[in-house]
Nucleic acid binder design. Structure first.
Ligand SMILES: [Mn+2]
Ligand SMILES: [Mn+2]
Ligand SMILES: [Mn+2]
Ligand SMILES: [Mn+2]
Lengths: 226, 226
DNA sequence: TTTTATTTTTAGGCTCACCTAATTCATGTC
DNA sequence: GACATGAATTAGGTGAGCCTAAAAATAAAA
């Protein structure tokens, strides 16, 4: 099936919105995410439905079909492999890779994908800690990580994933020691949701506004229940 | 200036046709090269003229403006750097790189370009021996290489560049020892232009039909006049 | 249950890059 | 100098992906 890069981005977006909870994805969510208007989304969803890539219930949103999910996973695999390759082999910082990968993901061949994966020795996660779908394009198994906002003052957690793409935010977090693999002690949770934490090895504590903290996904160290 | 990838390909094509001799490039040449129809080319040339990227004399073809040439050199630089990177760092064969580079050239950032150039230590030529324009985007100085068809039986020459992109042809040539840097003794020139030559280090001689030989550019060893 | 507010779809239009068919121009020949 | 030939342009049309404005459906409030 020959799909345009725009179609690929719609499918990827629907996939990622589905990962974040909702079962049916609504027109307006996609429009916001892709920065287009609702009518534009509606007509694209019609095309994707015709191609058997989404199931659509008019006025009630869409879900990916198995085929649509496979395409989305392919794009996500490209994206995350590229992010990993750029940081490992071309000296990019984790804050810089998203934009580059977002364009290239649609233009690399399967051969390129395979060679990049080989050069990286088939990595499991990208620089933000997000799982890279395997070459079989099966959905990666959900990790046990949860948003740091689910924890309490005094908890000690390990950062698994930072699901944010804003370069400014990522630079700031790295400067304050918040990166995948780092241990974090939650010092304070403000009433408006801001979390202040101390990263092991960092100079001082760091404060994360609610909407930033939401994207920092963590696990209890050594699988301890919290 | 924001240019589409299609516009970039038109400018690159005009640049490369100009390198091959003709001063003014005609509509039909571009159409053949890009595999589109003449009316399509005409309307694109009008757009490029409006943008100041080509000078156009109606019914008589176009030439690149300085600005158009700079854009073309930028695309060529991307293309050749990518080809070099793919062979050096991702284990591609020289016969496989063209197609991949032809897509990616339009989608890499200036940052990516710089990092690739750095990883390769600012190479002068791509895997086919073609010069890579510098970051300053000045036109590379024409080498003293000529097509091997300009030489005679008995001449010994050094392959500088193989200006062909067909993977089959390139594989065949490499299998018979014809690659940049290799010394070649011209054994026979057939009346219909086919050249038979012995590559130093290769098992046996290789025969190149006229249209293949034309793309093999060579120089006399150590600058000797022929 | 009716009214109101929000979301989605329909209707109609735009630009880009392509096409085919018809016309016009340039050029070389009689 | 008129004419045939081939190349280039004009004319008109398509599909992809976007838009705004208007209408319809759903969801929330009265
Ligand atoms: Mn993308
Ligand atoms: Mn792939
Ligand atoms: Mn290209
Ligand atoms: Mn560049």
């Amino acid at each position: 099936m020959m799909l345009s890069d725009v179609m690929e981005d719609y499918l990827k977006t629907i996939y990622q919105l589905q990962r974040e909870g909702d079962d049916r994805i609504r027109t307006s969510e996609i429009a916001t995410e892709l920065d287009v208007t609702s009518p534009t989304v509606t007509s694209m969803l019609e095309k994707l439905e015709e191609r058997g890539l989404v199931d659509r219930e008019k006025y009630r949103g869409v879900t990916l079909t198995e085929e649509g999910k496979t395409v989305a996973l392919e794009v996500v695999r490209h994206h995350r492999l590229l992010e990993a390759y750029l940081t490992e082999h071309l000296d990019y910082d984790w804050s810089e890779v998203h934009e580059e990968a977002d364009r290239l993901e649609h233009h690399i061949s399967e051969d390129f994908e395979a060679r990049v994966a080989a050069a990286l020795d088939d990595p499991d996660v990208d620089p933000h800690g997000s799982p890279i779908p395997g070459a079989d394009l099966e959905p990666p198994t959900a990790s046990d990580a949860e948003s740091v906002t689910q924890f309490e003052e005094g908890d000690v957690v390990v950062v698994e994933e930072v699901a944010d793409h804003d370069p400014e935010v990522l630079s700031y977090l790295a400067d304050h020691g918040v990166e995948p693999g780092v241990e974090l002690e939650i010092l304070e949770i403000a009433p408006f949701g801001m979390i202040t934490a101390q990263a092991i090895g960092a100079d001082g504590p760091v404060s994360l506004p609610a909407d930033v903290a939401r994207h920092v996904r963590v696990a209890s160290p050594s699988g301890v229940e919290h």
